[in-house]
Design a protein around this nucleic acid. Structure first.
Lengths: 363, 363
DNA sequence: TATTCATATGAATCATCGT
DNA sequence: CACGATGATTCATATGAAT
């Protein structure tokens, strides 16, 4: 299918084979409404990584993620961004997703090329891979940059749609969503994951609902398994994908054939009521609601002292509020939140009151 | 107070007046354990912003946040990072906080200068300022970059303390904390906020508990209202601040005078097992806790026999508790201490229990 | 059918010390 | 510096078998 766009026409809802720069250069200038790009992250992993149970992590070690230096990665980034900028309409916008390995290079290149950053958005993963060796923090998020083509671009932003998606509260710059797994994950003929870094549809759903209109043309220069195309088709947007790996193209085409455009009623999303958020006891210390060194007391008048990392000490015992409570009672377990009290103005107050305060703030 | 550091001495727990580059250049090389930097964000705000109720937002429009171009900001960033890198110990690390206006420039400059990014950490604000005009997403987070001085730096990471702070679950790269407000916010003599961008103590608490040791020297090149110094003092770390604005120095010094160091027991945090002394398995045999010839068993019921020199035999296999365990599982490695159990009174007991007994005696 | 248990796995720059 | 030995280390889901 093609669409007349000014004097030229666009190869809509197709995957363009080969290098994305060549593919974008073949399109007319100022013809695209939105670009979503998931470029290589330049991970540069060294050796194999094993889980504590000795299973090996299936790492992203594909040739397409290998660059010889930051400088080589920058050159690559600036080249594809230049081609991307040419095909964008003056009021068009771009999203790029990445991790700390590459996102700072991408952000700098975007600003240097004249794009105007509108927000950086954090995708908080509900189920990230842990840090198996305990040497760093769990890498639990990825970063997306949303930018207009120019400082003055009149970008599309469906404020009320996103507010509705967020239970009537203005959508924030941090999005909590699970990684792509289960039925949603595309498999090859052996049942293995067909693409190492398939993005969840929920992420693209939010991007496209929030920053495109029905009938808009969305370009994805690194199409991969085709999540952008699948969600675009479902939401009644047109897409153009670029991909140089034939096996990914095969997977994406099979996937796209399965996708049906949603009717209006199906588009209405139902939000599940989220459970009460977990509040670590240490947060009461960090936030100064309890001082390190402060004394807590249980119903029998036994005392424990708070430490800077949110653990307690009582007699010879050390551990979490739950562990120390259980040990003092000789019980297998204990709810520390209701077990311990602190003192304010001569009154004993259960520490759970403080947790409730934090939860109230989080809402 | 000063501390002898090699041949030179450090102006500990003081605020150095003037430009931070000059101040850092006056310090000896390789003398600082950790740097926490909250540089200008280069916001480049245009006009005044009003809330829906027509009150005006008190914007960050200070002269110190004005740069003529991205290039000028980059030059500034690369200059202070160079000075910062010189004063860091080889195994030192740096934290830099910023927003999408500047953090991509900072991250690129860090990587180009040879720092090695360990994590990017998202500070999710529980109570961010909304987007009043409904033109973008609520800017609800800021980004921190944590980086070692070099790729191979043996940075400090108190994994177990952070895990304890997070209720026994590995700490993630997204931290949900409220902004600094209320009585924590430093006020000037008119009762107005004394600094436009004061950071919450909870943020620094987590940074310093997680990535410094008691007695470490923490440098903050953009000291401002002195949050880094206040939390460092409280946690028994030494600090050095740099600040060129006399009014901020006045505020910070008044604030620091109020802060009390926590007592020792409150400062102790959960220790890593790696810090425990190493106990050779042979010592269990020497001490008669296990007899030569005694049988050990793994989870699958496979048996190995203890020899007088502290090696094991199973089938044709001989070697350390780790080597025989790994070989039986066909695994690349194995922690023999948790892999093997012995029998006492009909009960299977992990041999690690015996190691813990020896360690308890050593204390 | 409901519940429990065991197993698999995800964009990861993932160890340290002594010889 | 290279190498070998020691030994520390995981969270949330999805899936499928067993009860």
């Amino acid at each position: 299918m093609t669409k007349t766009q000014g004097a030229a026409s666009l190869p809509l809802n197709q995957i363009l084979r080969g290098d994305c720069i060549d593919a974008m250069d073949s399109l007319p200038a100022a013809s695209i409404d939105l670009i979503f790009a998931d470029p290589p992250y330049n991970l540069q992993l060294k050796g194999a990584l094993h889980r504590p149970d000795n299973s090996q992590v299936d790492a992203v070690d594909d040739a397409w993620d290998q660059f010889s230096s930051f400088s080589a990665y920058d050159q690559f980034t600036r080249a594809w961004l230049k081609a991307a900028r040419r095909v964008l309409k003056p009021d068009g916008a771009i999203w790029v997703i990445g991790s700390y390995h590459n996102i700072f290079r991408v952000g700098t290149a975007l600003q240097d090329a004249g794009f105007w950053i509108l927000n950086d958005v954090v995708w908080r993963k509900t189920n990230p891979m842990p840090n198996f060796k305990g040497k760093r923090l769990t890498n639990a998020h990825e970063t997306m940059i949303w930018a207009g083509r120019d400082e003055g671009s009149k970008y599309t932003f469906n404020y009320d749609a996103l507010k509705a998606l967020n239970e009537g509260v203005q959508m924030r710059s941090d999005w909590t969503l699970p990684i792509c797994s289960g039925h949603e994950r595309e498999k090859d003929k052996d049942g293995n994951k067909a693409h190492p870094t398939q993005k969840p549809q929920s992420l693209l759903h939010r991007v496209l609902v929030g920053t495109t209109r029905p009938g808009d043309v969305v370009l994805d220069p690194f199409f991969g398994s085709g999540t952008t195309g699948a969600v675009a088709k479902m939401l009644g947007r047109d897409f153009i994908g670029c991909e140089r790996d034939e096996s990914y193209i095969t997977v994406a085409e099979r996937r796209l054939a399965r996708v049906r455009k949603l009717d209006k009623s199906a588009l209405e999303v139902t939000q599940s009521k989220r459970a009460e958020p977990r509040v670590p006891f240490g947060q009461l210390v960090e936030r100064g609601m309890l001082r390190p060194g402060e004394k807590l007391v249980n119903a029998r008048g036994q005392i424990a002292k708070v430490r800077a990392d949110g653990t307690l000490v009582a007699d010879q015992l050390t551990g979490s509020i739950h562990q120390v409570g259980a040990a003092l009672d000789g019980a297998p377990s204990c709810n520390g939140w209701t077990y311990w009290s602190f003192t304010r103005e001569g009154q004993k107050v259960p520490i759970d009151i403080l947790r409730q305060q934090i939860r109230a703030e989080m809402r």
